[in-house]
Write a protein that binds this DNA or RNA. Structure first.
Lengths: 213, 213
DNA sequence: AGTTCTCGATACAGATGTGTATCCGATGCA
DNA sequence: TGCATCGGATACACATCTGTATCGAGAACT
């Protein structure tokens, strides 16, 4: 009944099929929704049958949990990668201005590249909303992302000696909410993602930085 | 095949069952999602059987469209009602400050009172995202709400001689996104809606008003 | 009061989905 | 090379959902 933690887990082959199933699930969730994607369809897209699925997951919700966990890891590592790339030359331009650019850059880099993936995450949030067993898992991932992102922002702010007019966690939530809203609107309209999204987010961030007046 | 526009429509009885079905659908969509709510369940909650449903709607998607349209109307009339209540005494306090308070008040008043209703709308947006036939309808309702809300904000701003650092439509989108994000987080956490939401939104709005410095 | 028509209930056929139980090939180990 | 285990496929039993076709009660109209 329980996908045991110890014995079953690690086998290269097994792990590979898990990943393929997870990938297929993310794709399908974005296209048809969590409830609109049958286990059968997920398997079909991954190139397996339901036998493989139930050998690896106890249920669709269990798979959802794993999708969430993996997303959390991917998000954090994408963010770290983006940070690593930032050149470290000190203030040739205004420090705050650079901070904003970099922060938005890192934020955007950590977001899913394909809008279907973002939709998939929206689906999973809503699914977690109505599925008590998933709430905790969703919140854990969210907290992980949220905490490390906002503490990162705090650090950067401190470095240039700037402050925010609202808590950094709220600013992070705000960026996420606006990003989500913008992308879903563009999808609904059939447009591509607005090119000036980075500047819009920068303007938002800027509005909450209290520095000079 | 087609729920005809002319002949079938108006009968008090018929209209009443339509409304009850729409109400039941909104409730269920909030609880179980659009795809998670069967036509049967909707009817059951409304106190009918599927016969009534298919006599009134061609399909679940058709009902979704009507839910959206009705939501749009409800939103607009709730907003108008909220506006009507605002006392019209001129500036005993700072005009901008009052403007912010009133604007947030009107905005909040137009939002659904029960969080399940908000979730229901999020569900419908996602459902529209993956259902081409619904996109247009969703966008129409959204545009209606968005346009009238932001032009209202523009009017109010003009009256007190204030300006925004970003287009008013963006500010409206932002308020909506933040509201949605906040409420869904609180639901996920099992908390009640944060009491200081109005102040948070006011702070946001404030941050985008350029006036004095 | 009788007739017509409206509206919703009931019954049915077909499709789809889930979870489990069983089976078979491949892989790893001796 | 022979054997045991693992991983995924196949088959099955059961549940659920949809849309339509048909039927009957009651409202409306005269």
């Amino acid at each position: 009944m329980n996908t045991t933690p110890e014995t079953v887990r690690r086998s290269p082959r097994r792990e590979a099929t898990r990943q393929r199933l997870l990938d297929a699930a993310v794709e399908l969730f974005g296209e048809r929704g969590v409830l609109g994607s049958s286990v059968e369809e997920i398997c079909e897209r991954a190139g397996f049958t339901r036998g493989a699925f139930y050998s690896n997951f106890d249920s669709k919700d269990e798979l959802c949990l794993d999708v969430l966990r993996r997303k959390g890891e991917q998000y954090l590592s994408a963010m770290q990668a983006a940070i690593a790339v930032i050149p470290d030359e000190p203030g040739t331009t205004d420090g705050t201005e650079r901070l904003i650019r970099d922060a938005v850059g890192v934020f955007l880099e950590a977001q899913p590249k394909k809008s279907a993936e973002l939709v998939s995450m929206m689906e999973l949030r809503l699914h977690a909303l109505r599925t008590p067993e998933l709430r905790e898992g969703w919140l854990a991932v969210h907290e992980g992302i949220s905490k490390s992102t906002s503490s990162l922002l705090d650090l950067a702010l401190e470095r240039v000696g700037a402050r925010l007019s609202v808590p950094s966690s709220q600013v992070i939530e705000l960026l996420g909410a606006v990003y989500e809203n913008t992308v879903s609107l563009s999808v609904l309209r059939g447009e591509s993602r607005p090119a000036d999204l980075a500047e819009q987010l920068a303007a938002l961030l800027d509005a909450f930085i209290v520095g000079d007046c």
